[in-house]
Design a protein around this nucleic acid. Structure first.
Length: 535
RNA sequence: GCGUCUGUAGCUCAGUUGGAUAGAGCGUUGGCUUCCGAAGCCAAAGGUCAGAAGUUCAAGUCUUCUCAGGCGCUCCA
């Protein structure tokens, strides 16, 4: 519809002014202001006013004169030069049949140029259960991958497991009986009940684990670290994520980058191309400033393996998306610099930064300190508020926004809780549809729906397409959460004001709510939230 | 100090590539159940869009500066 109107305007412009090259200036937008009754408007007259040195009002009137009236819409001109279009009711109401007939409401959002896309998210150090701080990135990453799949891309999701480095050594000493040594102090060790549980779990599986002594050799230590790491992934992290309905296509281990020499290769390449240099006994990347790749004690930094990882992924995929916590933003230039140095196009690397979420219980802030094992695990949160609420609340705000999340609202079972409000709308409609039986034989009459409640509801249905475009194509899940709230609200209002199950049932109305239900269901499923038939 | 995200109603947040009189939920206040699920509906009050200057026919939206908050600025991850 938008494009149709746009083309009409372009033609009218040509007739009136005989000017070409105006196509790009013409735009048609849905009206946003509440007091405007029209559905679409164009600001072209204002834009041309200076160019033509004419009053925008005159330009608008001139254009309108050339427009042909149709049975689809009416138009008028408003100060200071808006051209407004009102779509006729009958035309608008066709959305109801479109929705009911559609086999896949999301089909229009399929791309015709599918890409191979890599999405990496969560990737927390495998030192214990996931905590609430990881939740937002997990849910966001999961939904981004889903949206890309809906678009028809070939999506590969991955958890990058840091099973090398100091944190893993710390974990090893925390769990095993091996005394700390070198630059590691006892204070740094991980504490908490899960450490004790993990230790006994590993001992059960690998009885030799009990016998580890301080004299353990380096290679044997690495072997045990690998076992511990695997254990943490399988028994904590994977389970936590599965409870949230999140599955990864691949668990990529950092050690593999060393085993197959990828780290060595990129270090060599960087050296050959003059992008790295030795500095006080360490190997540094010449980025924004010197950044260590190999420390003077001979250990590789995470940067070295991260560069190898991204080098590998960028060569394999058309697009690489990383979902990172906002605290990592300082790391981006280094990675991008490294990728450029290795000859990659950094436009293919898209890093989404997620701002932190704060949890509250009423006014009380819940601490997320990882110190001494005193943190709220993600599992506790999921157990308490459930998947539907956690998905909704984490997705309801855009990723750049700091998020304050009140558990008291999430567990409420009334309209305070928007998840229930939306689900309730779905369940209410289900009840009605069950009462009236099958609808197939009835032919919908678009002329019959015309009261204000119906107009409002249908107008909301009409913006579903646009919402999907913004949400799915634009990778902005929060747009969909807001839309579903609005649609549910319009439905509840309709339901309370217009009786549906009357003696002589008006099937056009039933058709309408059936369409609403279908859209709500589609939207909820899009966000990984259940659409219950009963509550 | 530098970088980055944020600042919109009492609270939590939306606000399309700049468009008309600023949007929603919660909370507050006042109404609504002989009737499809009140897990709901209707109505009202509530705003110098942090502040200042600039660009524009038009700025919550773009530019610059200031103020406030979060996060980061390690041979840490």
């Amino acid at each position: 519809m938008k494009n149709k109107l746009k083309n009409l305007l372009i033609e009218a412009l040509k007739k009136d002014f005989g000017k070409n090259g105006l196509d790009e200036l013409v735009e048609v937008q849905p009206t946003a202001a509440k007091h405007i009754k029209a559905d679409y408007f164009s600001n072209i007259a204002m834009k041309l006013s200076k160019k033509l040195n004419k009053d925008p009002m005159d330009i608008a009137l001139g254009i309108v004169k050339e427009l042909q009236p149709t049975d689809l819409f009416t138009f008028d001109v408003a100060k200071p030069g808006y051209i407004n279009f009102s779509i006729k009711n009958t035309q608008k109401n066709n959305i109801v049949t479109d929705i009911i007939k559609s086999k896949d409401l999301l089909a229009p959002f399929k791309t015709n140029s599918p890409k191979k896309i890599h999405v990496e998210f969560v990737s927390a150090n495998p030192t214990g259960p996931l905590h609430v701080g990881h939740g937002r990135g997990a849910i966001y990453g999961n939904i981004i991958a889903k949206f890309l799949r809906i678009q028809g891309h070939d999506v590969h999701t991955e958890y990058y497991v840091n099973d090398v480095g100091r944190q893993m050594t710390l974990l090893f000493h925390s769990i095993s009986k091996c005394e700390v040594s070198g630059d590691i102090t006892k204070d740094e060790l991980y504490k908490g009940e899960y450490i004790i549980d993990a230790a006994s779990g590993i001992e059960k599986k690998f009885p030799k684990f009990k016998e580890i002594s301080t004299s353990i050799g380096a290679s044997e230590k690495r072997k045990w670290i690998s076992i511990i790491c695997q254990y943490m992934i399988e028994n904590y992290i994977k389970k936590d994520l599965e409870q949230l309905g999140i599955h990864f296509d691949e668990w990529f281990y950092e050690t593999s980058l060393f085993e197959n020499m990828r780290v060595k290769e990129i270090l060599k390449k960087l050296e050959e191309t003059g992008h790295s240099k030795n500095h006080e006994g360490a190997l540094m990347l010449k980025a924004d400033e010197l950044r260590p790749l190999i420390k003077s004690n001979g250990e590789h930094t995470y940067l070295a393996s991260d560069l190898a990882y991204h080098d590998y992924k960028l060569s394999k995929y058309d697009l690489v998306i990383n979902i990172w916590g906002a605290d990592h933003h300082g790391y981006i230039p280094r990675i991008k610099y490294g990728m450029e140095a290795l000859g990659h196009n950094t436009k293919k690397l898209d890093i989404h930064l997620i701002q932190f979420a704060n949890l509250y219980r009423g006014k009380e802030k819940i601490s997320m300190s990882t110190r001494k094992g005193k943190f709220v695990t993600l599992k506790t949160l999921v157990d308490e508020i459930g998947n539907d609420a956690i998905n909704f609340f984490y997705l309801t705000k855009k990723k750049d926004q700091h998020l304050d999340f009140d558990l008291n609202v999430a567990i409420a079972e009334d309209k305070n809780n928007p998840v229930y409000y939306i689900q309730y709308a779905h369940a209410r409609i289900e009840k009605i549809l069950n009462e009236v039986g099958k609808l197939e034989q009835y032919k919908f009459n678009p002329d019959s729906l015309k009261n204000d409640f119906e107009k409002k509801l249908i107008s909301s249905l009409n913006s579903f397409y646009e919402t999907c475009e913004k949400s799915i194509t634009g990778l902005q899940p929060h747009v969909m959460t807001h839309y579903l709230q609005k649609l549910s609200q319009d439905f509840h209002s309709y339901y309370a004001n217009v009786k549906l199950l009357t003696e002589k049932i008006d099937y056009d109305k039933i058709y309408l709510v059936a369409a609403v239900q279908k859209v709500i269901k589609c939207g909820l499923e899009l966000l990984n939230i259940n659409a219950p038939e009963k509550m």
